[in-house]
Amino acid sequence: MKNFIRLVCLFTLFITMANIAMAAERPVLGNIQTSSKKLTQEEFGYKKACQNYVPYEVAVRNNNPVPVVVTANTRVEFISADGTVTPSDSRRQIYRKSKRFDHSKHIIGALPWSVPSNVRLARNMMIEKPLPIRFEPGKVYNFRVFAPVSVTNPVAVNITNLTFDRKTLCDIKIPLENVEEL
């Protein structure tokens, strides 16, 4: 019985270590030029959004000869100075935490002007500069990411699970500090 328990423990340990090793194997894609800019509340213009998130405008140029594409499992992660990795909120949550109180959802016969500000917010945060689904070679892509305010001193943002051959997964790491414009 003891031997059996030892065997199970060893097997579990092996699986855990293998998982960690596989997670660490995902390479960071080279030949990528990036730049980033932190947007202040005056530049971004939405007070409630800035209370919950720190907006960054990011530019990426793919200098590889092949296009790099996102997958449905692509995530945006923020890396702090101490190495902590914090996943970004979903686009849905970012919008919900940043929007104004919507009368139309709670009161029948809502005021007609209660919604346009949320439309402008959605346009600014989600429609105008979204994460591109395809990075063509040589082209510069600008998009916005929103770091939760709970992330202290973010130094980089990771776009994970990208692929260029439909098999290999890789990441793009974009530094958020001391960067020059593309």
Binding site: Y95, S104, P112, S114, P116, V119, A122, R123, I127, P130
Partner: peptide, 21 residues
């Protein structure tokens, strides 16, 4: 996300744009 408000006073003949991912 809809890029056009449905509750504007002058909404009747508008065409709204929306982005889906």
């Amino acid at each position: 996300f809809l890029d056009n408000s449905t509750r504007m006073v002058n909404w009747s003949n508008k065409r709204g744009l929306a982005k889906m991912v």
